[in-house]
């Protein structure tokens, strides 16, 4: 892992330029506020950290008072909680799930394993650093972090969203080539997810200079095209 790789990514927090129309600003602020106060989370229970989530959700700590609710499918969710070590097989699913989530979306790595592999550092089958494969908004370190820590982390994320600092999801589009490259390194050049990330970036104007590159070229060569089924007469 070369440190230069990470340099290619602009470091968070990055603030977006404000829109000039004051009404639009108010609207944006409102939407951001709502986003921060209504977070549907998809907890991807990969490891031991998951055990700490039920207390965080239920009567003891009651996440719902913060507007946080568990959801089941990536389509509905805003936050992806990776709760523990990510094996390489699991990582494929994590990436698939992440790509299927609707933006803005946020990733929280819980437990040390997501930060640096933790006690699985020496394992050949574990992805060590989650943020090489997808942008992570927040790490909650600990083995395992207690519910208080989880709630604390979520509150931090809320603040970041409110202040328009949680824009890591844009990184994924803008630096797709980098993430894809890391993924290809791990899974081989035939790696392909059903989600058309580049297409999405084009449609939602999230293309950056690093969206396309050598790795996306490989992808475009090997992938089986999955055009949406448009209605035809």
């Amino acid at each position: 892992m070369k440190s230069t790789d990470l340099d290619r990514i602009e470091v968070n927090p990055k603030t977006m330029p404000k829109r000039t129309n004051p009404l639009a600003n108010v609207f944006d602020d409102l939407v951001r506020f709502c986003r921060s106060r209504s977070m549907f989370m998809l907890h991807y229970c990969t490891g031991c950290g998951a055990i700490e989530l039920p207390p965080a959700m239920t009567s003891r700590f009651d996440m719902e008072r913060l507007g946080i609710q568990p959801m089941v499918t990536p389509r509905q969710a805003d936050i992806l909680l990776i709760t523990g070590y990510v094996s390489i097989k699991t990582l494929k699913r994590v990436i698939l799930t992440y790509e299927q989530m609707g933006s803005p979306k946020y990733v929280i790595g819980i437990c040390s394993c997501t930060v640096n592999g933790g006690m699985y550092w020496q394992s050949y089958a574990t992805a060590k650093k989650l943020d090489e494969y997808m942008p992570v908004d927040l790490y909650i370190a600990g083995c395992m972090p207690r519910p208080e820590a989880v709630i604390e982390g979520l509150q931090q994320l809320m603040d970041k969203i409110k202040n328009d600092q949680a824009n890591s999801w844009k990184q994924y589009y803008e630096n797709y080539d980098y993430y894809l490259g890391n993924q290809q390194k791990l899974f081989g050049n035939n790696w392909q997810t059903p989600t058309d990330v580049i297409g999405e970036a084009e449609i939602y104007r999230l293309m950056g200079p690093q969206t396309l590159g050598e790795h996306t070229k490989i992808l475009q060569q090997v992938q089986k095209p999955m055009e949406p089924l448009e209605m035809k007469l």
């Binding site: 299927q100 059903p194 999405e200 449609i203 089924l229």
Partner: peptide, 8 residues
């Protein structure tokens, strides 16, 4: 954005 039926 329209997606393919296998993006599911």
């Amino acid at each position: 954005k329209r997606v393919h039926q296998l993006d599911n």
